[in-house]
Design a protein around this nucleic acid. Structure first.
Lengths: 219, 219
DNA sequence: ACTTCGGTTATGGCA
DNA sequence: TGCCATAGCCGAAGT
């Protein structure tokens, strides 16, 4: 069993480690798990204002009549000074979390495309995945069946400008200067299309097939 | 006033939007804020398993005798199906969060460098900050006092390869083709050094002065 | 609304 | 373990 402690407090926070930050006194929610992780939440936003990962040593002491929580790891430390405790609960959470199942990652798409090049273009023949160019590994390496031309393909779920720069680097690092560059994505952003055109990079939007649902084309 | 609702439940979660994920039934903690954000926590780790940012429409209904929470925004949706409610609280959190104060950010470093170019090199004269090139704004624009040469500088706390590509784009977009490119950072990663050298980009590591110490604030 | 960029990014993969 | 690239990255600022 794992315990989660949640406090509603008026507090100040000080963090030092990867950077240095402070939080002035205010009303907040502090969540502590018994793996040593803490997060300090305000009433808004999904991200905690301050936090610290697991493996921290947790200690608590009274300084000037105020409860002070301290979290220390080798390289970081976080201190929560509690000016006023408003509420405090502790819940027992069953362990054995099965974990998040992700579907439709870039890696999935890349693998699927390698076996379904026709989704891009009927003239493409798959050659290699994660093909190593002088400037790093390009997602897909293909060949144009009509012209015999090498085609280097950058795969993205959502392609933004960086994809254009990426593929340009691969072309630059590739030994065959005649190679074409191409972006294949579920979503090629408008400005990315323009930038790609400008640099002579082809782009194609594809539809990823239905996942995890045998007959989910019901619409 | 802002309200934060925290539930301890046995639940399943389904998310669809930027990707697709599922969480099998298990014991978890759900935090809902009244800006529409949600996060689903297990008993471990600082990051939520599932989450959704603000601006979501929250709705709730009973399906097959189970309470279902739905969060919908234009491009994403998250569904929490509650198989068993173990606990539920709602806290009222004072608004007006003063916010996190960061120290030693890239922006701080950039400003400090603009006034202390000698930390980089004695021959540099500051010209402009966030100088607009055809390829976007470069952090610092300077001039070499010996040669009169333009120097475009990318500032980073930690410089990784992307900094090299960034500065190359700025040089490409700059009107003066003779301009030199430079990376200035607290930490230039090994591969970045190599890559910079290869592309004729200079790089310099600097020490940031002590922060928050009255004596060092003289300027 | 779309894009760009910094971040205490976190996190997984690989040398 | 350290280093690098990805992520449902988030969040903020600028256009």
């Amino acid at each position: 069993m794992e315990f989660v402690k949640i406090l509603h407090v008026n507090c100040s926070v000080k963090y030092s480690g990867r950077g240095d930050t402070t939080l002035a006194p205010h009303d907040r929610i502090v969540m502590m798990k018994d793996d040593g992780s803490v997060s300090v939440h305000s009433g808004e936003g999904v991200k905690p204002l301050n936090y610290m990962g697991a493996k921290a040593k947790v200690s608590e002491e009274i300084v000037d009549g105020e409860r002070v929580l301290m979290f220390d790891s080798s390289k970081e430390n976080l201190t929560v000074t509690i000016h006023r405790l408003i509420n405090e609960i502790e819940w027992e959470v069953e362990d054995g979390e099965p974990g998040l199942v992700r579907d439709g990652t870039e890696s999935d798409l890349q693998e699927w495309l390698s076996k379904n090049m026709h989704a891009i273009n009927n003239n493409l023949e798959f050659v290699e995945r994660e093909y190593s160019t002088g400037a790093g590994p390009v997602d897909l390496y293909a060949r144009d069946l009509m012209t015999g031309c090498d085609v280097l393909i950058e795969v993205k779920r959502v392609a933004s400008s960086s994809a254009v720069y990426q593929i340009r680097r691969y072309l630059e690092g590739h030994d065959n200067p005649q190679a074409r560059g191409m972006i294949v994505a579920l979503d090629v952003r408008p400005r990315t299309r323009h930038l790609a055109d400008k640099h002579g990079i082809e782009w194609v939007e594809v539809n990823y097939p239905a996942r995890n649902t045998p007959a989910s084309e019901a619409t």
